[in-house]
Design a binder for these strands. Structure first.
Lengths: 204, 204
DNA sequence: GAGAAAAGTTGAACCAATTCTAAAATTGAG
DNA sequence: CTCAATTTTAGAATTGGTTCAACTTTTCTC
């Protein structure tokens, strides 16, 4: 293993992702022509299609990195959550939202979301659904943790509440990336307001 | 007014929409080539672009009809809602969901949603956002009505709860159209389960 | 280390949406 | 009725993502 070919392969993967990331941010997803990505990555167009099924999958690879980082950051909160329900939720959601524009511009998010609904069975479509599910699971895990600690009533339907919170947050995030002028603090405040009723209902 | 030209214009609009609706359902959005739509509508490609900015806007016109019908149907429920909170919500949401596949196949919904996130500033993108807002308003109106009747506590944040319920339903609907094998009864049951906690929290 | 097989690369050709252009049809004014 | 303005039409040209058949490079075998 790890012969020349392996190394070249890994190197080309990296070059393509790097080139695409830069061009997507500079020129936007549509503005970044495959030809330009190929040129920047010093690779032919055909080669890109050997590594990714289509343009969307390149974006998909970038999105996956971003979301996995977010999931990782979230683990800390689930492990030792703030000592009241509202803050715990707000902290986890805050991590998701604050990290979200690290690598991806709003325009890239829009494209990624669009592709994932347009082609739910493509590699990226499936990966995106899996990432959504992972985020939902993390919120559910937080709620379960809060139940164990005794901050959340044991008799509520934790999984359903977790979905409810994730779905609402996700939809709010979609609206957020659709409007370039929307700001993160307003988004967080709106979600906090929506969650308030739930926090009140499930807290002890 | 209403000269030959006016009538021809209206007629062409209708022919284009009819042709597109049929072909979108038969061949899918991507499968329906502009050439085929033009031929079926007995119109040239150039003419279609004279009436709609792009292929997505044709789909947009169809979606608008569907959602407006749904909004209309919803008015009845808001006007005289069932006599308990859970049923009231379930009835309104049921109307939305049951009507949703009247004209539009799941594939058409996927495309419509994708386009609306991809191009939020296009005519269709803005129209779609407005439709979402109208649906949110209708749910809020229902909650307000229930507050007036005395079925929902007067001291809860009605608008926030309305958004929460709409956003969750919408996200569930998005997941529903992404999976061809997903069934309406399961969707409704899942949403009912998620709403249960809210119904319990806001009811008297 | 030579030759064959396997794996990967290349870019020209293809396809469908969109744009553009010039000709034809329709209308309203005089 | 006739002419100028406006709209519609047809279809050729453009564009950019994707495919594919021929070529290279790497690896394996002896």
């Amino acid at each position: 293993m790890s012969g020349l070919r392996e190394r070249q392969k890994a190197d080309r993967h990296r070059r393509i992702i790097d080139a695409a990331t830069e061009l997507f941010r500079e020129a936007g997803y549509e503005g970044a022509k495959m030809e330009a990505i190929a040129a920047q990555a010093e690779v032919s167009i055909g080669t890109i299609y050997n590594y990714y099924q289509n343009k969307g999958d390149i974006l998909g690879a970038i999105v996956s990195m971003e979301v996995n980082e977010v999931l990782n950051a979230g683990r800390g909160v689930v492990g030792s959550p703030p000592a009241n329900v509202g803050d715990a939720l707000d902290t986890l959601i805050g991590i998701y939202i604050e990290h979200s524009l690290n690598y991806l511009s709003k325009e890239m998010w829009r494209q990624a979301m669009a592709i994932s609904t347009q082609l739910p069975d493509s590699p990226f479509g499936q990966a995106y659904t899996a990432l959504d599910r992972a985020l939902t699971e993390q919120i559910r895990a937080l709620i379960q943790r809060l139940q164990e600690i005794g901050l959340v009533r044991a008799d509520i339907d934790g999984p359903a509440v977790g979905e409810l919170i994730f779905n609402n947050m996700n939809m709010m995030f979609i609206e957020f990336v659709k409007r370039d002028e929307a700001k993160i603090p307003e988004l967080r405040a709106a979600i906090r307001r929506q969650n308030r009723i739930l926090v009140w209902a499930i807290g002890l």
